[in-house]
């Protein structure tokens, strides 16, 4: 069970949160103009990395805000958290 530092509420137990999959996948602005393959790329394709992964989490049982988490999936260490719309940390 992680401790996640919600960018709004501070450090809380993982049980207050839900994971929302890979971060920085933007919904296409004009889906109708995409081919089946392009749409499928957006809809289905997700990375599953051993190592540094960018993820979305939501503080379901707290402020209900979505935010991003950088997590090393090999040891579950959270390297950074940042708000939606903010740029991912570079290092």
């Amino acid at each position: 069970m992680f401790i996640i530092n919600c960018p709004y509420c501070g450090e809380r137990e993982q049980s207050e949160f839900k994971a929302g999959g890979e971060a920085h996948i933007v919904r296409p602005k004009q889906p109708t103009e995409l081919s089946d393959d392009e749409w499928a790329e957006y809809l289905f394709m997700r990375k599953n990395i051993k190592g540094i992964q960018f993820e979305r989490w939501v503080h379901t049982h707290g402020c209900r805000k979505w935010f991003n988490v950088v997590r090393d999936t090999s040891n579950d260490k959270i390297k950074a958290v940042y708000k939606m719309g903010e740029k991912p940390p570079t290092k």
Binding site: C9, S15, H61, G62
Partner: peptide
């Protein structure tokens, strides 16, 4: 103030 879980309830 806190919003949290008590006995699995918000």
């Amino acid at each position: 103030v806190t919003q949290t879980i008590l006995a699995k309830i918000d």
